[in-house]
Amino acid sequence: DENEERIRAFALYKGIDPEKARELWERGEINKDDEEKAWREYK
């Protein structure tokens, strides 16, 4: 689903483990601007 892809995109963008990215996502600790930037680059 799209959230999974967004988490993966963010992990790649930040160079972090996707599981770590998922934890940040679930806790609401992902910066929305960074997340959008990562998503645009990923697509």
Rank of each mutant, 00 (worst) to 15 (best):
D1G: 12
D1T: 12
D1Y: 13
D1A: 10
D1M: 12
D1K: 12
E2N: 12
E2V: 12
N3G: 08
N3W: 15
N3R: 14
N3F: 15
N3V: 15
E4S: 08
E4T: 08
E4R: 07
E4D: 12
E5K: 09
E5G: 05
E5T: 06
R6T: 03
R6K: 10
R6G: 01
R6V: 05
I7T: 00
I7G: 00
I7D: 01
I7V: 05
R8T: 08
R8Y: 14
R8D: 05
A9I: 08
A9R: 08
A9L: 07
A9V: 07
A9E: 02
F10W: 11
F10Y: 15
F10R: 04
F10A: 05
F10N: 04
F10M: 12
A11W: 02
A11K: 00
A11P: 06
L12N: 08
L12C: 15
L12Q: 14
L12W: 15
Y13W: 14
Y13N: 03
Y13E: 04
K14I: 13
K14T: 12
K14L: 15
K14G: 03
K14A: 14
G15C: 15
G15S: 06
G15H: 08
I16F: 03
I16L: 09
I16D: 00
I16W: 05
I16R: 00
I16G: 00
D17I: 05
D17W: 03
D17L: 11
D17R: 06
P18H: 13
P18T: 14
E19M: 11
E19G: 10
E19V: 12
E19N: 09
E19D: 13
E19K: 12
E19W: 08
E19I: 13
K20S: 10
K20Y: 14
A21K: 00
A21Y: 01
A21T: 00
A21G: 01
A21R: 00
A21Q: 00
R22I: 03
E23Q: 11
E23M: 10
E23K: 08
E23W: 09
E23R: 08
E23T: 08
L24W: 05
L24G: 00
L24F: 05
L24N: 00
L24H: 03
L24A: 06
L24C: 13
W25F: 13
W25R: 02
W25K: 03
W25A: 03
E26P: 00
E26G: 06
R27C: 10
R27L: 11
R27P: 00
R27N: 13
R27Q: 09
G28V: 01
G28R: 04
G28Q: 04
G28P: 00
G28N: 06
G28K: 05
E29N: 06
E29Q: 09
E29C: 15
E29F: 08
E29R: 04
E29D: 09
I30G: 01
I30C: 04
I30D: 01
I30Y: 10
I30Q: 01
I30N: 02
N31K: 08
N31F: 05
N31M: 08
K32W: 14
K32A: 12
K32F: 10
K32Y: 08
K32M: 09
D33E: 14
D33P: 03
D33Q: 11
D34F: 03
D34T: 04
D34I: 06
D34H: 02
D34A: 04
D34R: 01
E35W: 15
E35A: 15
E35F: 15
E35L: 15
E36N: 07
E36I: 07
E36P: 00
E36H: 03
E36C: 14
E36M: 06
E36V: 06
E36G: 03
E36Y: 06
E36L: 08
K37I: 11
K37M: 12
K37Q: 12
K37W: 08
K37R: 14
K37H: 10
K37N: 12
K37G: 05
K37E: 12
K37F: 08
A38R: 02
A38I: 06
A38V: 03
A38F: 10
A38D: 02
A38K: 04
A38L: 04
W39K: 04
R40G: 07
R40S: 10
R40F: 13
R40Q: 13
R40H: 13
R40W: 10
E41H: 11
E41K: 11
E41M: 11
E41D: 10
E41S: 09
E41P: 02
E41R: 08
E41G: 04
E41I: 09
Y42G: 04
Y42V: 05
K43G: 12
K43R: 11
K43V: 13
